[in-house]
Design a protein around this nucleic acid. Structure first.
Lengths: 109, 109
DNA sequence: TAAACGCGAAACCAAATGGTTATATATTTT
DNA sequence: AAAATATATAACCATTTGGTTTCGCGTTTA
């Protein structure tokens, strides 16, 4: 079953600095929306929209807990970016990249 | 002298699939604009705009040669993405990532 | 039970994005 | 010199993006 035409791909998701900061925050801890919002100078509604985009890219997920919605990180989709990048690494590679590429052959599946 | 607030960062530059395809094309060969355009179903003007965004991110550069403008790839700025990604790799890492991270310690500078 | 909290959803807005067509200019080519 | 080629630039357009404010609703807490 191939990917069903994802609405927001991971490349677009990480293109925004606010969203990258959200990812960093969630890499430390899972957090409710209000807590995430407190780290930015924008409204909770705006932050929620960023969270939705990240969730559509499956980089985060949220669970409802009481009146809070707690989001956590799922970094796996970043692997697509990593794979894409690996193609270009050979172009600016230093001497170690041959070994690194060999190591990465294992990667997925 | 720090980076002078780049107008288009590399994350935004690679967010668009057309621009990623341009990078792939230029990874094979340097090419004039018309040649690049022939690979897409959009106007030369539209392609030129993508080229400008990639050039602002310093991922490509163009030189004028006769009446043609020939673009070539400069993949080095992708290193910023790689660095960013490396922080998250530890979260989904398989057993090999420890070795890989050690290897990459050398990386830049 | 009333007030405060956390969130969702809708309506709205300005600016950026990704595209178009038209026109002009410099360089070959015939 | 005239025609064709390759590009640049400007004006325009629709949609997306990133933000806002407002209102309503379930969940705690006083």
């Amino acid at each position: 079953m191939a990917a069903p035409a994802e609405k927001h791909d991971v490349f677009k998701a990480i293109a925004d600095p606010t969203r990258r900061e959200v990812l960093r925050l969630l890499s430390e801890n899972e957090r409710p929306i209000s807590e995430i919002t407190s780290h930015f100078s924008m409204s909770r509604t705006a932050v929620t929209k960023h969270l939705q985009i990240l969730a559509e890219a499956e980089l985060i997920s949220g669970r409802k807990e009481g009146r809070e919605k707690i989001y956590q990180l799922h970094p796996e989709p970043l692997n697509e970016v990593k794979q894409w990048l690996s193609y270009y690494e050979k172009f600016w590679s230093n001497k170690l990249s041959i070994l690194k590429n060999l190591v990465e052959e294992d990667g997925d599946s």
